[in-house]
């Protein structure tokens, strides 16, 4: 019954973007974010938007999925917009009663809100096209040079992987325990906040007990299959950088170059 849960945002289809190496995707996402912050005028945002739409198109992810990521942020967006609009000093544009809108305020409001939108859009593009397990793989590889300073890159990735493996199992278990306690007259729905928090104890205690038992079992099973940390370990899933990855790097480099040119040569204030 819980076969249909998808974790995080991952949109499981096949595409050129999905097949990119996760390490490359993480790095390119960061570069794109830098580009977003370098943008000087609306023309720059138009560039970024075009790029995002292009990637979305190539990734077979519907644009509405991209917009879905922005939806929860709408209040913060509106707040950012109006705070900047009303509380930035500079050349007055409009003055109605106690409301003063300045040229700088308008510019800042638009810039900050758009940055926020693209920030979410770019990272969404990555998480929509990269499964959590690939993400953790990519992170592990990217952070592995830090192992020399004892950064636990492998351990973190292993934890991530085990967590992903056990989330569906524990969800099923939660459902089962909840039903069992309901059969004993437990009430998880009514009462005030404190009562409701208290009513969670019969659910949480068995869940924790079970999680610890599973952890103990799993540790034994891993040991019996010769697990001894990340050293001298090989991987079934190997990450290979392909021609598509190079192409993607070039595309993002071009985007970055264009944005830098735009921020240098189009004077600020011309198109905002």
């Amino acid at each position: 019954m819980l076969n249909n849960i998808t974790l995080g945002q991952y949109y499981p289809v096949d595409s050129l973007v999905h097949r990119l190496d996760p390490r490359i995707k993480i790095v390119l996402t960061i570069v794109t974010l830098v580009a977003v912050f370098l943008v000087g005028t609306l023309a720059g945002y138009a560039l970024i938007l075009a790029f995002c739409l292009l990637v979305a198109r190539l990734s077979n992810v519907p644009v509405r999925m991209l917009l879905k990521g922005i939806k929860p942020l709408r209040f913060i967006l509106i707040l950012t917009f109006f705070l900047n609009l009303f509380f930035t000093s500079g050349t007055e544009l409009v003055h109605v009663g106690f409301v003063i809108i300045t040229r700088e305020g308008l510019r800042q409001a638009i810039h900050f809100s758009l940055r926020l939108v693209f920030l979410v859009m770019t990272t969404s593009l990555m998480t929509l096209t990269t499964s959590p397990i690939q993400l953790s793989d990519g992170m592990e590889m990217l952070f592995s040079p830090l192992k020399v300073i004892h950064f636990p890159a492998h351990e973190l990735a292993m934890m991530m992987s085990i967590a992903l493996r056990f989330i569906p199992t524990l969800m099923e278990e939660t459902d089962k325990i909840m039903k069992a306690q309901k059969a004993r007259g437990a009430d998880f729905e009514s009462g005030n906040l404190i009562q409701r928090a208290k009513s969670m104890i019969p659910l949480l205690v068995p869940l924790f007990v079970s999680a610890f038992r599973r952890a103990g079992d799993l540790a034994l099973a891993m040991e019996s299959r010769c697990y001894h940390g990340g050293e001298h370990r090989t991987r079934l899933r190997v990450l290979r950088i392909t021609r598509m990855d190079y192409l993607a790097c070039v595309a993002v480099a071009v985007l970055l170059a264009l944005v830098i040119l735009e921020s240098r040569f189009i004077p600020k204030g011309l198109i905002l």
Partner: peptide, 13 residues
């Protein structure tokens, strides 16, 4: 109607 689930010991708390 009392209902005892499978492995009911897992619901002790």
């Amino acid at each position: 109607v009392g209902l005892v689930f499978q492995y009911p010991e897992y619901q002790l708390f």
